[in-house]
Design a protein around this nucleic acid. Sequence first.
DNA 1: ATGAAAGCGCTAACAA
DNA 2: TTGTTAGCGCTTTCAT
Lengths: 351, 351
Amino acid sequence: MGGTGTGGGGAARRGASGPGGGPRASIRAVATLAGVSPSTVSRALNNPELVNAETRRRVLECAERLGYRPNRAAQSLVLGRTRNVGLIVPDIANPFFAPFIKGVEAYFRDTEYAVFLADTDEDTATEVRLAEAMVERVDGLILCAPRMTGARLRAVAARTAVVLANRTSGAAPSVLLDFRPGMEQAVAHVHALGHRRCAYLAGPANSWSNRQRRRFLGAACAERGIELVDLGPYEPRFTGGYRAADEVLAAGVTAVFAYNDLVALGVLSRLAARGVPVPGELSIVGFDDVPMASMTNPPLTSVAMPVNALSRAAAATVHAMLDPRAPKAPPLPPATELATRLLIRGTTGPA
Amino acid sequence: MGGTGTGGGGAARRGASGPGGGPRASIRAVATLAGVSPSTVSRALNNPELVNAETRRRVLECAERLGYRPNRAAQSLVLGRTRNVGLIVPDIANPFFAPFIKGVEAYFRDTEYAVFLADTDEDTATEVRLAEAMVERVDGLILCAPRMTGARLRAVAARTAVVLANRTSGAAPSVLLDFRPGMEQAVAHVHALGHRRCAYLAGPANSWSNRQRRRFLGAACAERGIELVDLGPYEPRFTGGYRAADEVLAAGVTAVFAYNDLVALGVLSRLAARGVPVPGELSIVGFDDVPMASMTNPPLTSVAMPVNALSRAAAATVHAMLDPRAPKAPPLPPATELATRLLIRGTTGPA
DNA sequence: ATGAAAGCGCTAACAA
DNA sequence: TTGTTAGCGCTTTCAT
């Protein structure tokens, strides 16, 4: 090589020390110790079948002895992939998302991928910022109920593999919940109990779920001649329902469909505090079937979502996009839909 | 340069395309377009003051035009840092951790760091595996109430900057909650109400919080001559308390201290279902002051944790370890302690 | 089956 | 102020 400069990037890595406290072992150190070239070490680690068994054994032993860990940045640089996947949800504290997250994490637990989880706090700007930050650090991204615009979504999808959960877009494949069956069952149930004037407690106006729920609910009610009063929007939490309860009472309805279980639980709690009997005076239907729904008194009638199936479908879909050899043979459907269903419990009764 | 081989790593990156759909722009493309060298582009981006204003303007414009985004893997490789920090918690669904997580995320939102969040499902093996995976991808790690052994913790701390939350160890600095004041206030309160035989509903046996809570509670009770019955362990969730309630009733105590609010809420709910008056027949004290604690009927007396302060302290501590210029002047205390306090609400009354 | 060389995209030390 | 050069640690052709 020509040139005389001393050159040189490379800064000290913090905390990067080997077992002996010395500097972190590189592939070269292993190669030297094993008396082979770096390429052989690389092969022994990544393509064992290309290396003589005895050589491999020795290399592996040396690597072990030095506590060698391949440098991920270097691998990412040369391979062009990070082996990270991102997961963005609106609110980790929302009991609907917790199982979703856990499902995704569980799926990737046994793969080479690590999952980057982030919470947007239900805020669009934060969601966009997080997506930008993620895109640079992952090979694929699961966007759960994104609020961002279609254009922005397209920009993100152009930079990394994206799967949408609870939202459709031409820009990326999606996994969806089919609200219709659950909604129709809920409305049929309430109708059979004699309710003719009901309320819908809306969630965030810009939320896809909210629009979907309202839409199917409206259709089902219209079909059966149920009058539907719109209330809200309320924040999709316990406190939202707490606040909603008083407005419900003032609206003169005999049954309510809450945006989600949290809201329904808030209503239930506030009603108990005000001494209003449920379902005697008011019937309540929740959405999501969160764990606590079955534990209140009375237990909450709710539309259950197959969240677990949804999360695994989402995970499997990105995985398939990243690694063609991943499980999931069929040629990626643009949208996977999973049916919801009504769970009748104690908060619904005769009008 | 000598040599004749054509060499070469580099694989196709998926989804890596520029605005025109072409291959992703590199720093060299920008340099060429702007008629400068790559170093100048690098400087214009990272050390603007080292570059002529006009040159910088042109470079920035070209970068913008090409949709240039620096390759993080390359930066990480040369800089020796990822600009990621990891956060490991036992359970994102636990309302105690949700605010903690959000606090950490909020802190780093305005920094150059992205946060990698992971959930161990309260499982030690998972925790260890996640920590291993994280260590390779982050510059620093916040370990929330880790269950891993001290030896393992030391190994992790040797590889990256670590901050412990709710756990101490010689291996890394920690941020802690000081349970004593809250516990003493709770016991004094219950004692003043005339209770002399109480129960502690234990959480996970291997949990640091559980041991701490039990310890301070035991001390405070002994001091005031209160007999303390140990029940459990229960899983630290709503369902755990649900199950605990019946055992509490059988134990013949007049007041209980639950491991956390979730358990307390479960007890309260089950008691309501069985028609047992609270606090008439049994007084209940929770721990954590989760949002829902103030919304039940009656609202839950609970020991409040300064979680927000805790999370910010944890975040600021790792940040300071990563970047000496980060806020937080004082020379890293080995442990930061934050006081808890009792919030008296409706679930505690005369014996 | 193994090694030598080249280069992924970037930053920084040095020279000009 | 800017360009040149070297190299971060790894994988992968190509040659042996």
